[in-house]
Design a protein around this nucleic acid. Structure first.
Lengths: 110, 110
DNA sequence: CAGCATCCAGAGCGATACTG
DNA sequence: CAGTATCGCTCTGGATGCTG
């Protein structure tokens, strides 16, 4: 969003990577999922049990969107029963830095 | 969100200042309004004209929420016709720093 | 100019049941 | 265990018209 036309076109705003990232992070459970995965990898039900109030449907959707964004990696171990591990990618890990700065700001100002 | 219980209670997550800040920033037009006000103060219709696709209702609500959060100051000049100026508060200005870091990350990784 | 009141559509989120 | 399928609802966001 370096140079903004005036009026700011809706298409330009929606297409901006900063906007897209903020809107993804702003979804209801995204921050918590990233925070948990930022500590260590988790299995699916481990996340499900670890987050009070999230439904399977929404947890799955949240994880899939983060995977599509390249922030989370999903690894299936073809065992019986199946075992699926979620962890942050390198990009996901790198998010923790600016996110930590924003968190520190929020604690002070919110 | 320094020490998370397991499972993370919904109440604790919702009450966390980081969560609240991210959720506010994630609302549809918040980032753009903050960005514009980060450049200079704006009058109401200046913002309205400057943001393609936003309705008066939503612009007003966005500004009022940011005002309630202490990020935006609203100044009414009792002239005829009325003139209302919106600008970032000191807290709002301070947000631009971590937000800039997040923006730089997003440009690289999103 | 800077809104408010009213009404409305749809996205997002959730509960529940079921399955490879 | 790790999901998918359906259905339903809340609640954000939007369109329109009016006003101090």
């Amino acid at each position: 969003m370096s140079v903004l036309a005036s009026p700011v076109p809706a298409v330009e705003y929606d297409g901006c990577p900063v906007t897209r990232a903020i809107h993804r992070l702003g979804e209801k459970w995204t921050l918590l999922v990233i925070t948990l995965l930022g500590r260590r990898p988790h299995r699916y039900n481990e996340l499900h049990r670890g987050i009070e109030g999230i439904s399977q449907r929404i947890l799955t959707r949240t994880l899939r969107l983060l995977e599509a964004d390249g922030l989370v990696a999903r690894t299936v171990h073809p065992t019986v029963p199946p075992q699926v591990e979620y962890r942050l990618t390198a990009a996901g890990e790198s998010l923790l830095v600016p996110l930590g700065a924003l968190a520190a700001w929020a604690v002070e100002n919110y």
